[in-house]
Amino acid sequence: MSDILLEIKNLTVSVRNGKSDIPIVKGVNIEIQRGEIVGLVGESGCGKSMTARSVMGILPGPARKSGEILWHEPDGTVTDLTGLSEKALRDMCGLRIGMVFQEPMTSLNPMMRIGDQVAEVLRIHKLVRNREEAREKVIRLLKEVGIEEPALRYRSYPHELSGGMRQRVMIAMAMIGEPGLLIADEPTTALDVTIEAQILRLIRQMCVSRHMSALVITHNMGVVSALCDRVYVMYMGRIMERASTGQLFANPLHPYTRGLLSSLPRIGKNPEYLTTIPGNIPEAGREPVGCEFCLRCSDDERRCFFERPSEIETDEGHYVSCFMCQRV
């Protein structure tokens, strides 16, 4: 039944540091089906944003990537985004793939009216014939993302809007080209809980009503649970576990996933102390030879230090990279 939209194959990103290359993302494979919302969850520095940025071709200067990023058209043609020229990639991004960033204040242009900013996408990609048509389209979309009095707000500047409203404008900007995939990098991290709930609902609605897929980058398990169909758990540049959201929360297998979930303070469960993952995340470039997690793992054995576990399927659609899970 596979109806794949985007396939990231063996993606590696490294950053040059002096004479050596430090790998940040190490052979990551991600598949996104049409209409599916996929979560990529991990702590800061694990490479989740780098993975998302690789797709858009907007890695920071010193970063190098290798691997394939395959875009599947409905008619069966496959394009490798990594092989595209800058111009061809620009046509791709913005039209087929839209991106929403974390901080809506810094990613909007403070000198431009928000309506014109959203309309800019239409103008650059030549999607409209004239100003009037662009204006109409933008106003319709602003209304759809929940901005009241869109005709009036069209003329507002970003500083006149609240954080939640700005994020809605960002979403409108990402959506105006009617993309097949929305990449959202920590879309609600800078927002209050009540606004967060509204924005999550909005992203979900947009995906359903337009049969759009989404890749949601987050560190928040609550966001994953509320929004995503499937989840990838990332640690130090590697995917440790992937499963459907239901499977992952009902039966987390990897020691890192289990550690993360038990570290979360939760309402309704009141332990005296939280169960924590001991130690700190090792510095990039100083990771162990074997499993990245072995130094902080509670049930490691000798081979974990020397060998890297490969991914195994424990249940339908539930994959984990851990020696200890193999035995079960």
Binding site: V193, T194, E196, A197, L200, N220, M221, G222, V223, S225, A226, L227, F249, A250, L261, L264, R266, I267, G268, K269
Partner: peptide, 15 residues
């Protein structure tokens, strides 16, 4: 109540 209902629940937490 509004604040509490806005927290995204994790798995099957009773929020």
């Amino acid at each position: 109540r509004y604040l509490l209902s806005s927290i995204p629940a994790i798995g099957d937490d009773p929020v």
